[in-house]
Each structure stands twice: as C-alpha cells, then as structure tokens.
C-alpha cells in the first residue's frame, strides 16, 4: 500500500502561485476556486486522495506555506 500523507496549506502565507501544483508528482493539488484567503488569493489544496507526504510541494513553495505530514507505520514488535 502506498504511503499516506497529507498537507496543510496556510491561508496566511499561500499566494496561489501554482508552483506546488506543477511540481506535485502525484498530481493531486489544485487551486481551491471556491475559497479566497484574507489577502484575496485562491489557496492551493489537495482535491483527491493520493498524497504520499513526499514534501516536494513544500520544497518549491516560495512562502513556506505548506506543512507536510505522513502516516507513520508502526513496526509491530516481533515476539522473541
């Protein structure tokens, strides 16, 4: 199973420049045309499942607006 991740895009910092959208290897990001940030930009968001938490969006983001999380796979203790 693919690793599951998720992102949070800050409304304070996102300027809707679309760099994360073109860089996302999974193609799961787009601008949220239904919402405006307080500064008047359409913020980026993930519109479908498939984020792996690779953080490439955060690497190209000029405004450090993206926080990236990834589901941790806890190793099951092997009985001795």
């Amino acid at each position: 199973m693919a690793v599951k991740g998720w992102i949070e895009v800050s409304d304070t910092y996102c300027k809707g420049c679309e760099l994360c959208i073109s860089a996302c290897p999974q193609g799961v990001m787009e601008l949220d045309m239904a919402r405006l940030t307080p500064k008047g930009y359409h913020p980026a968001h993930t519109f479908k499942e498939g984020c792996t938490g690779c953080a490439i969006c955060a690497i190209v983001c000029p405004d450090a607006a993206i926080t990236v999380f990834r589901e941790t796979t806890k190793a099951v203790p092997v009985p001795a």
């Binding site: 800050s10 304070t12 910092y13 690497i59 450090a64 607006a65 993206i66 990236v68 999380f69």
Partner: peptide, 15 residues
C-alpha cells in the same frame, strides 16, 4: 507524523 514545517528561523510575517 510531521515531515516538513515552516522553519523556526522565520518570523510570522508573510513576505
């Protein structure tokens, strides 16, 4: 779960 977050060496000011 955290992979990446805004660096702490930044202030809260948007650029």
């Amino acid at each position: 779960n955290l992979v990446y977050e805004r660096p702490e060496a930044f202030t809260e000011m948007p650029t």
